[in-house]
Design a protein around this nucleic acid. Structure first.
Lengths: 144, 144
DNA sequence: TTCTCAAAGGATAATTATTATCCTTTAAAA
DNA sequence: TTTTAAAGGATAATAATTATCCTTTGAGAA
């Protein structure tokens, strides 16, 4: 993602463009596996050694409020962040902290259709997210 | 849920039956809206004023490990707990901390069928949970 | 370009939920 | 009844996050 694109996203939301925000946004995009605030801090420290941890948290909050990123729910007590805000789901590995994005428009359509038919009383559905929990299988059986 | 039933659940898992565990299990069952450890502490304090907070956390962890209860993922930094371990989903209210259970076997079948057909490469699905996010609508318009 | 100032950042302290420690108590099997 | 590993209580420690408060800066106005 280019500097201009990020600048665009920020100004679009009426947010000041600062080097800190640029660096943090870039970091979330670049870091895979839905980084924590600490992952992000560590990553940006390489090129911006003087961005404080507090700032990282503040910026992440501002971004989440403005739907530039989203928070990812986990069973652990660390928050994780996702640069992708388009409708998608998450694959949780049940024996590691790996979290992958899962895109599936066919599934989205299926769910939309389903909940259009099957209403939940007194409730207006805004969004549906799947947590797909399971295990990654290494095909290492042929190796020793 | 009766004392005998709870005792049964504990012994079934090879867990010692203690007054603390009984009280905590009862509390989770009784408290709606997926209580936090603090909600539970507060609740049991009425009848068991000397159960310490540490014990509540320890017991909740033991219960979760033994699948007597489950942890509920939220975007906040407090863990919440659910006495229901059967396959079900959660409805998250987007403007309060309300979390409701959602049971729907038709939906479960639909998802099972779908993921039987549509494999995720190198991944074995163990469980699928929906987070249904939206708003409860009060029908108070006729009232003033 | 310079000025202005609300918004943003830095450093640090404070908070909050949770976990660890360590000694005491107790459930439950012998 | 005895035994003992497991469980609980009190308290301290940890770790993630939030608040504070002063300084700096982005960006619009002059």
């Amino acid at each position: 993602m280019s500097t201009e694109e990020i600048t665009g996203k920020l100004t679009e939301k009426g947010l000041k463009v600062t080097p800190q925000r640029m660096a943090i946004y870039e970091a979330i995009v670049k870091l895979k596996n839905h980084p924590t605030a600490e992952n992000i801090s560590e990553y940006i420290r390489k090129n911006h050694p003087n961005i404080s941890v507090g700032t990282v948290y503040k910026v992440l909050d501002v971004f989440a409020e403005n739907r530039l990123i989203q928070k990812v729910k986990t069973e652990k007590d660390v928050m994780r962040y996702d640069a992708i805000v388009e409708n998608h789901h998450h694959i949780y590995c049940s024996d590691s902290d790996r979290i992958e994005d899962y895109f599936d428009n066919e599934l989205n359509d299926l769910l939309e259709t389903y909940f259009k038919k099957k209403k939940i009383p007194d409730f207006k559905v805004e969004d549906i997210k799947l947590q797909i929990i399971g295990k990654y299988i290494q095909n290492n059986e042929t190796l020793t």
